[in-house]
Structure formats: structure tokens, C-alpha cells
Computed example of a mutant assay.
Amino acid sequence: MALYPSLRSLIASLCFCFLAFSLSAFGRPATFLQDFQVTWSDSHIRQIDGGRAIQLILDQNSGCGFASKHKYLFGRVSMKIKLIPGDSAGTVTAFYMNSDTDAVRDELDFEFLGNRTGQPYTVQTNIYAQGKGNREQRVNLWFDPAADFHTYTILWNHHHIVFYVDDVPIRVYKNNEARGVPYPKLQPMGVFSTLWEADDWATRGGLEKINWSKAPFFSYYKDFDIEGCAVPGPANCASSATNWWEGTAYQALNALEYRRYRWVRINHMIYDYCTDKSRYPVAPPECLAGF
């Protein structure tokens, strides 16, 4: 049956509105140059597929790095990364947010520590809040992150910071300011990534050195997604309760996320600063605050 013109127009309008809502609600994959710029060794970063993916290169001459063009105050950042295959001992691929300030730095870190062939890849997370860091946790990944792309995400709102690997939370840092625990909430942070040599500490505490005969080393990135309050921007954005990342569903882990989080901590966590008595005879206050 033929549709009346007015009905056709209504359906077309609804479809357009639904598409616009979808794009605004779920964000968009960006090309590299839309949101990022090279900060270190331009010759060691190559754009692929029209800038929708990039290759980072580490050799004996240099590593490399890139950063977002803007800083953000709260939101969610995610990237798909494929790490260095084979013997990657002594290398570090990092994806992090940083306020780029000195004395009172805020920083949220993913650091992927290279390995000898056959050993699990370790991801180290760390949090700097109002100048204080040294909050390392390490998890052995339960898959081969060099065989394919996996999604790594940082969610940051007024309630907590969550590090995700393929939608599995591996680290939660709650806002415990009421207990005197510093929480990053005042300084906007940029999004950074680097590939570099760190064989003085990266693999088994520096016992495994980088094998330059395996160079060059490559890591790959795609599906860059930043959703947050850009600075400079509307002054009221960061405090707005209407931002989706501040919504009820994102203020705490849901039941499924919590089960996954507990599974990671029980089966794959290999280091937690909270339980390192040699460094902290008395556990830091955020460790005593509980989940």
C-alpha cells in the first residue's frame, strides 16, 4: 500500500532523529588526525587505512608518541590496540591520561609490559591524584593481545575511575574524598600514548633485556573514541549531571561487571600495592576504604 507523503515525511524524520541520537549517544570512531597529533618522532608513526589506524614503531634509533589535541575533564576514552608480538621483553606500550603538570600531576595509566615469547603479557595500571602516585597494580592478560585488536577503556567520572579490557573491569578507584583520599577532579587531562624502551624495569623487574635483533617492534591502534568535556569548552560541562558518563548506570559496577572484576583479581592479578608490606607497612587509606 502506498504511503501518503505526510507519512513518508514523518517516517523519514523519525529515522533521521534516531540516527542523530545514536551518533550522539554512542560517540563516533575518529581518524587519528581528527583528535590527535604526533608528539615524539614523527617518522616512527605511520597512518594506515586513511588515518583510521596507526602503527607505532620502536627501533634502536627511537620510540614514538602521540597526544590528543585537547584536554578533557571527566568522560570516557577508549582505543583498540594490538600489541607487539613475539619477543617484546623490555618494551612498554602505554595508553594514559595526564594533566601535563609537574608538582600536582593527575594521571591514569595503562602500561603494557613486554614479555619473552610464551609468557603472558602484563598490564600495569597506576593512578596519580593531586600529585601522589605509586598506586601500581599488575594483571596478566588472559589472552594474547598481540594476536588481534582488543579494546582498552578508561571511564572517569565524579564517582570512580574504571579501567576496562574488552568491557571487563580490571581496576576500580573510587572517589573516597570523604575519607581523606585524593581524587582527580580539578585538572583536565590529555590522552597520550607512547612506545618506548624500558628494559631497566619493564620485564621481570629489568631482568629480561630488550633483544634488538627482533627490532623493529610494532604496535597498532584503531577506533579512537573520546567522549568527555573538552577544555576549553562550556564551563558547566564537567559539573553537569546530564552527561551520560555521570548517569546512574555508570556510578558503580553492575552485578555482571563486579563478577568479572572479582574474577580478574582472583585469577589474574599478580601485584597490588595495597598488599605490598615492604612498601606500605600500613596500607594506604584508599586500600582500607574497601570496594
Rank of each mutant, 00 (worst) to 15 (best):
P5Q: 12
S6M: 10
S13T: 11
S13K: 01
L14V: 10
C15M: 10
A30I: 06
Q34W: 08
F36R: 04
D42M: 07
H44C: 04
D49A: 14
I57Y: 01
I57R: 15
C64F: 07
G65K: 03
F66E: 13
K69Q: 12
Y72S: 06
M79A: 09
K80R: 12
K80F: 14
K82N: 14
I84C: 02
V92L: 02
T93F: 04
A94I: 06
A103I: 15
V104D: 15
R105H: 04
R105S: 09
D109E: 07
E111S: 11
T117A: 04
G118N: 02
G118L: 12
Y121Q: 13
T122K: 05
T125I: 11
T125V: 10
N126D: 02
N126K: 07
Q130P: 01
K132Y: 10
E136H: 09
W142Y: 05
A147V: 10
F149D: 01
T151A: 07
D166S: 03
V168K: 00
N176E: 05
N176T: 01
V181L: 07
P188T: 13
P188S: 13
L195P: 00
L195Q: 09
A198V: 01
D199W: 00
W201M: 01
A202G: 08
A202M: 06
L207P: 08
K214C: 06
F217H: 01
D225T: 09
D225P: 07
S240Q: 09
T242C: 08
G247R: 11
A249R: 11
Y250E: 11
Q251T: 08
L253M: 11
L256S: 12
E257R: 06
H268F: 03
T275A: 09
K277H: 06
K277I: 14
Y280K: 02
A283Y: 02
E286N: 08
E286W: 04
E286T: 03
G290F: 00
F291N: 10
